[in-house]
Structures are given as structure tokens and as C-alpha cells.
Design a protein around this nucleic acid. Structure first.
Length: 591
RNA sequence: GGUUCGGUAGCUCAGCUGGAUAGAGCAUCAGCCUUCUAAGCUGAGGGCCAUUGGUUCGAAUCCAAUCCGAAUCACCA
């Protein structure tokens, strides 16, 4: 049980006895005491004044005094300032934590809770390479999945590959028109980039044709609609749907180019999935559900044959679920896939990591499932994350303002190489070790950068300024870890050695933070927010660095002190590593 | 226009289930390597928390209005 909840329990129990009326743990707040005051944790008294009919000083005095006498094993002292009761926790509490947990590989993790969760993330289109926005999605999804695992859930990572539709046909048409049979191999291009180039070419040609149409006297709408290349694309989509062999073959070939490119990127950034769904397999799902919905009266058919759902009562519009020609729209397949996931994996919760531009769509999806009375409906949760923007605004693939994922990773690795070489601390590393280190640091900086902010908020990335390696960054935490490991290589810890019984303030600070690990994890899991972990791990590293700069471990004042600090170092390194791993970041032994 | 989200230091972000003098990092300035890795540590400056009103013992936080910005509202995915 965490120290905070122990204080809450003790306080509510004491108050209930003292004032002969029930107090529960929500009646008051327990915060960490601010640095400028004496104490470890603070009870805010204001909210208790009315119920106890006391002034802050008197209440604080009574409460503090009683707590001290009733729980002598927990509290060492108290003081009252304004409406705040500052409590000092006994050193023994922190020392006990250190003694029993410093070496516990499962420290901070929550017990298994039997719940099953699916996290769908990444979900790329197969017509262009991944960009910075996808990186945020991938890191978020992966990290959230790991955080949930650590908090006791059984987690399944899934990915829906959007491998069919007009967007792919655009790349295919452009390839037919302009490639002259070129392939990724023949041009030495990574497959996803290769296909992406033809997507760009499509748009160039399309624009050109619109201009020509306008010059020929067409109005804007007609020029857009009647452009031959667009017509060809639509024809190709129809050919795909009826399975015309030549189209299917080209489609498969080009998709495979993209997949081989994606594989390389996923491998590098460490994304993995337990289950991959392909839209080409799932796009027909959901049609029977629509049929059932019609029978139930959840949906209605319009005169032209199209099927709709009326969501105006929920503040939304009417939404189409089946076209007049009977083909399904995006939301139809989503309903089908939601059902399939539920049936295949028996999941208690289904999380979708999708950008906030699709808030409306996801709201509709959940509403439809609810109206259909689907058992999984209430467990659909949209983890809606903000877009990554440039200082100039939104990234737009058509305008070429996207930050390419592969290029950015390359850049990060090159930057970490540069920094490492300048510092010259690992000159004895083999080439392979160096390559691993550069990747560890470069990716660490990038993942930390993208995960340290609240997922819900949009964020700004300035390509002109490279991602930092100092301060609130991945490498800062990695460095702290490496430095601890360096000490531990030189000073082996003796497991049974006695340790010092008193704690210096800088030593205690670290333990106070270490103690909070599980609470932070639980909060991060509940809020699906990896930034909680990033902030935590940074604070822990900072606290250790402050300690490190003042107190020596190897040359500690006494042998007992040295043993205590070695344990402190071991435990800190363990939690730093675990926390960083939850973010998908590796911590090096040396750097 | 409807709906939703956002506006905190020069920049990037915490804090937002109301509580002590609004916090970090970067950048700027001043110190600290004969000592376990200086990718580090210590300190300084920097704020009408968009604006106005309200609720409260107490508001960056809750409510209302206004201003500014973004997303979304397709027989696209």
C-alpha cells in the first residue's frame, strides 16, 4: 500500500474517532509537501473545517498530535502552516522500502487483473511512407500497450492496414502511366518511398489535368470530376472490386513493395503487433450487421436504397452505413471489425489509437454499436491524440511539408553519433556496439520527445531545431542510468551487508520518488498517458543526479553508508530502466 | 453556421477532480571537472496563466460571455 493511501487511511480513521462522524478518504487531500516546508506529505485542512467546526490551527494540532501517537511507526513529526498539516514520515519507512525492494525485478508493477484489452494503433495507408505523425501514433500505441501490461492487463496489439481503396489506386495508376516498369529494386528505393513517389506523381498530374480542363472551358467542379486520371482511378477501383486479375496483380505487387518498406521501419522503431488485419479482408464485414440493424429498426432505408442511421437525437447528423449500390462505407467495416475483434479475442476493452481528426467518426462508431445493442459497444475507447504540427501549421503530404519518418530516424542517429564522438567517452567500443549505441540514443531522444507531452494535445515540431539531448530528454535519463551502471561495475554490492540507519535529505528524496512508481504507473494506465511515465522518470533521474553531485558512493563516509547508497543506485537504475522500457526506450550500460 | 478541442516564461511543455510564493526543459547570464562518466550539478533573470465578469475563505484550475487558433460536420478512407 502506498504511503499516500496509508496516510489517507490513518487520517480518516483518526478523524472519524475524534469527531464522531464518518470521514472517508475523499474528504481531504494528501499532497507531497512543497520543498520550502518541513515534512514529506501534507494534509490540506481547509475542506475539513466545516465538518469539524474547528479553525485550521486547532484541527491541525489535534489531528497531528493524535496521528503521531496512534501511528508511531509511520509518523516522526508534524507542523502546521496556515491550513496545511505537514507530516514527517519516519526514516524507517523509507529504509524498509529500500531494504526489501531494491533488488525486486517486479518492483512497482501491478498484479494481474484478468482483464483483456486490445490496442489498435499504427494503421497505415499503403500508398505512402510513414511520417512524423505516424511515429507519434506508433510510439503512443506501443507504450500504452506496455503500460497496460505493467498495470496487470492482458494486452493484444493490433493493426489494421488500409490496403485498398482509391488512395492505393492513385499510386497504381500513376505507376502505370509514368514508371516504365521501374521497381524499388531497379531504382534502389525503399519500397514504401517508391510507391509514395507515384502517389505524389498522381497528384501532380491530376492538378495539371484540372488546369487543362479549366482552360478548355469547364467549370471547376466538372474539371475536377472529369479529369481523365481520376476517371481511370475510379475505373481501377471498380476493377479491383470485381477482382480483375491484372489489377489484382499490380495491387499485390505494389502493396508488397510498401510492406517490405514498412517492415524495415517498424523493425527500426520497435513497433510490433500480435494481430494484423487487412482492410481488403475486412471491408465486406459489417454488411450482415447492417441487415440486422434494419430489421431491428436501428437503421432505415431511403428511397434510393441507401441505408442510414439517424443520430440527430444525439446531436449528430444522419449517417450513411450502406451505399445505394449496396457497397459498404468506412464505418460499416469498422462495425464489422469491432465485432470480429470482440469475438476473436474476448476483450473487455478495445482501444483505438487514432488522431483527433477522427473524433466525430469514432463517436459515430460507438453510438451505432450502442444502438445495435452490441455487447462490446461501451468498451470502445478512442485514444484521440493531437496532430504533430510544424511551426507553419499542419503537415500536408500533398504540399511536401511532411517530415518523413525514415529521414528523421536517420537524422536522430546521426546526431547522437555526433554528440557521442564529441564527448569521446566510448572510444573502446567495437563498431557494432557503437552503431547500437547511436541507435539507442537517437531513438531514445525521439521517442521521449514525442511521448513526454500529453497525447491529447497537439504538439509543435520544429525541423529547424534538432531534438535535444540535454535536459528533459531521453538521453538525460539514459545518461543517469549509464552513470549508475558504471559505478556498479566497479563497486559490487554485498547483499547481506548492513546498511546505514539514517537518511540524508538527498537520499530520502530519491526514495520518496521511487515509492511513487506504482501510483504513477496506475495513473498512466488509467489515463492512457505515457507522458506521466516520462515526467516521472525524468524527475527520478534529476533527483539522483542532484544526490550524485554532492555525495560520493564509492567514497562514502562509512561502509554502511556505501552499502545504503549502492542499494539506492541499484533501485534507481532498475526503475529508470523499467520506466524507460514502458516508453519503448532502451537504456544503455555505457554511453 | 453547428459540434468538439485548445490559448500558461522568448520557444517547447507541466500544473486544470479548486489550496502554500504558478513549475520544468531549451535559450540567455553567472559559477562548478586533481574527486564514482560535466549528455551532469548549483544559482540568476524572465509571467496581467487570452480578455471581462461571476461562484468561493481561496480560481491558471469551476461557470458565463467575448476575442484568437485548430479539428470536424462527404454515397473519401
Amino acid at each position: 500500500m502506498s504511503i499516500v493511501s496509508q496516510i489517507q487511511k490513518a487520517t480518516s480513521k483518526t478523524l472519524t474517532l475524534l469527531y464522531q462522524q464518518p470521514f472517508n478518504e475523499n474528504d481531504f487531500q494528501v499532497n507531497q509537501t512543497k520543498e520550502e516546508f518541513v515534512g514529506d506529505y501534507t494534509v490540506v485542512l481547509f475542506s475539513l473545517l466545516k465538518k469539524t467546526n474547528q479553525n485550521p490551527a486547532a484541527l491541525g494540532e489535534t489531528l497531528g498530535n493524535t496521528l503521531l501517537h496512534k501511528f508511531p511507526e509511520l509518523f516522526a513529526g508534524y507542523n502546521i502552516i496556515k491550513g496545511f498539516l505537514n507530516l514527517e514520515i519516519k526514516d524507517d519507512y523509507w529504509l524498509q522500502l529500500l531494504k526489501t525492494q531494491y533488488n525486486n525485478v517486479c518492483y512497482g508493477l501491478s498484479p494481474k487483473n484478468g482483464q483483456r484489452i486490445m490496442v489498435e494503433y499504427s494503421s497505415p495507408n499503403t500508398n505512402k511512407p510513414l511520417h512524423l505523425g505516424h511515429l507519434r501514433n506508433n510510439f503512443l500505441g506501443w507504450s500504452v500497450a506496455e503500460i497496460l501490461k505493467a498495470d496487470g492487463y492482458e494486452v493484444f496489439k493490433s493493426c489494421i492496414v488500409n490496403d485498398r481503396g482509391v488512395h492505393i489506386c492513385k499510386s497504381m495508376i500513376a505507376w502505370q502511366l509514368f514508371a516504365n516498369g521501374a521497381t524499388p529494386e531497379s531504382t534502389g528505393t525503399k519500397g514504401d518511398h517508391f510507391v509514395g513517389e507515384y502517389y505524389v506523381k498522381f497528384n501532380e498530374e491530376y492538378k495539371k489535368q484540372i488546369k487543362e480542363g479549366l482552360a478548355a472551358g469547364l467549370d471547376e467542379k466538372t474539371a475536377e470530376k472529369e479529369a481523365p486520371i481520376l476517371k481511370a482511378t475510379q475505373q481501377m477501383l471498380q476493377d479491383w472490386e470485381v477482382g480483375k486479375p491484372a489489377v489484382m496483380q499490380l495491387w499485390e505487387t505494389m502493396n508488397n513493395w510498401v510492406y517490405s518498406g514498412f517492415d524495415v521501419t517498424y523493425q527500426r522503431i520497435g513497433s510490433d503487433f500480435d494481430k494484423t488485419y487487412y482492410e481488403s479482408n475486412t471491408y465486406l464485414l459489417g454488411k450482415d450487421i447492417v441487415q440486422q440493424g434494419l430489421e431491428k429498426g436501428v437503421f432505415f432505408r431511403k428511397e434510393d436504397g441507401s441505408v442510414w442511421i439517424d443520430l440527430t437525437a444525439n446531436g449528430l447528423d444522419e449517417k450513411i452505413v450502406l451505399r445505394k449500390d449496396g457497397t459498404s462505407v468506412y464505418i460499416t467495416q469498422d462495425i464489422g471489425l469491432a465485432q470480429q475483434k470482440y469475438q476473436e479475442y474476448k476483450i473487455d476493452q478495445s482501444i483505438y489509437v487514432i488522431g483527433d481528426e477522427q473524433n466525430y467518426h469514432m463517436k459515430v462508431l460507438k453510438l451505432i454499436a450502442q444502438k445495435l445493442g452490441e455487447p462490446y459497444a461501451d468498451n470502445i475507447f478512442h485514444l484521440s491524440y493531437g496532430m504533430v504540427e510544424l511551426p507553419s501549421g499542419k503537415m500536408k503530404s500533398r504540399e511536401g511539408t511532411v517530415v518523413d519518418a525514415d529521414e528523421l530516424v536517420d537524422e536522430m542517429i546521426a546526431t547522437s553519433k555526433k554528440h557521442t564522438e564529441e564527448l569521446g567517452k566510448v572510444k573502446d567500443f567495437e563498431e557494432e556496439e557503437l552503431a547500437t549505441l547511436y541507435k539507442t540514443l537517437g531513438l531514445g531522444a525521439m521517442k521521449f520527445y514525442l511521448l513526454r507531452v500529453d497525447p491529447k494535445k497537439k504538439m509543435v515540431f520544429n525541423p529547424e531545431e534538432s531534438i535535444d539531448f540535454h535536459g528533459f530528454t531521453g538521453p538525460f535519463v539514459q545518461y543517469t542510468h549509464a552513470r549508475i551502471k558504471s559505478i556498479l561495475r566497479k563497486e559490487p554490492l554485498e547483499n547481506d551487508a548492513p546498511i546505514s540507519a539514517d537518511l540524508l535529505p538527498l537520499e530520502k528524496n530519491i526514495l520518496v520518488i521511487l515509492e511513487q512508481f506504482n501510483q504513477v504507473l496506475v495513473k498512466a494506465a488509467k489515463e492512457l498517458n505515457p507522458s506521466e511515465i516520462a515526467i516521472y522518470v525524468f524527475n527520478l533521474a534529476k533527483s539522483f543526479n542532484s544526490f550524485y553531485s554532492v555525495h560520493s558512493i564509492t567514497n562514502a563516509e562509512t561502509i554502511e553508508k556505501k552499502q545504503l547508497r549502492l542499494r539506492l543506485a541499484v533501485m534507481t537504475a532498475g526503475v529508470l530502466k523499467k520506466g524507460m522500457n514502458l516508453l519503448g526506450i532502451v537504456v544503455p550500460e555505457r554511453m
